[in-house]
């Protein structure tokens, strides 16, 4: 019995130390910016001009959702300039009709690089902003916090939605595929719908 307890204790200590080290490293990692050049989707688009800024995070889910959203806008004739949230991403937003922001949620807040980017822009001057956040569980708290962040920087929220990995995204069963595949399809259709409502 004592030997069994010692074995379990050894495993628990190893796991806790490993989890602590992993969390500390990941916390540092999520604060790091990813620098990518500005890429343009549908460069001949005339319906409007979009700046899409993504904080990619630690999995492919945020990028998948944002890419689907960008494609939806491009299909409606918009020109989409896509980049990642970093100190090298443009903050000159004067030429854009819509700003799309996307980020994963960690501890109920959008990823720090996206919050830092919003801070660097400072004043959105009433521009239309669409936000996509991806969370593990219920994204409601992160959505509320991001709404407040946009309002504090003088942005006009055109649309915001939180997609989840471990909560059903499509409770009505309108889409097919896994929960995250449904989220990607929903983001695409949301962009199509939004493109039709913007001036």
């Amino acid at each position: 019995m004592v030997r069994l307890m010692r074995r379990i204790l050894a495993a628990v200590v190893i796991v806790l130390v490993a989890a602590g080290v992993a969390l500390a490293w990941l916390n540092w990692r999520v604060h790091q910016e990813t620098v990518t050049p500005l890429e343009t989707l549908n460069s001949g688009g005339t319906a409007g001009r979009v700046l899409a800024v993504l904080s990619p995070g630690l999995s492919s889910f945020p990028a998948d959702v944002m890419t689907a959203f960008d494609k939806g806008l491009a299909e409606k004739g918009w020109r989409v300039d896509h980049t990642t949230a970093s100190s090298e991403a443009t903050t000159d937003i004067g030429a854009y009709d819509l700003i799309v922001l996307a980020a994963p949620v960690y501890f109920s807040r959008a990823a720090p690089p996206l919050q830092d980017y919003v801070g660097r822009v400072g004043d959105f001057g009433g521009k239309q902003i669409a936000v996509l956040v991806t969370a593990g569980g219920d994204p409601a708290e992160a959505v509320a916090a991001t709404k407040a962040l946009i309002a504090a920087h003088n942005g006009t929220l055109a649309w915001i939605y939180g997609y989840a990995v471990y909560e059903p995204n499509d409770p009505d069963g309108k889409y097919e595929g896994s929960n995250t595949e449904r989220a990607v399809r929903m983001a695409h259709d949301a962009a199509l719908a939004l493109a039709g409502t913007l001036p």
Partner: peptide, 25 residues
Amino acid sequence: GSAFSVLALRDLLVAQAAFMVALGA
């Protein structure tokens, strides 16, 4: 245990830590 922490806590950062623990173990 790693998988349970992912499902019970449902935070993407905790999930990544749990995946790292699983990979490391």
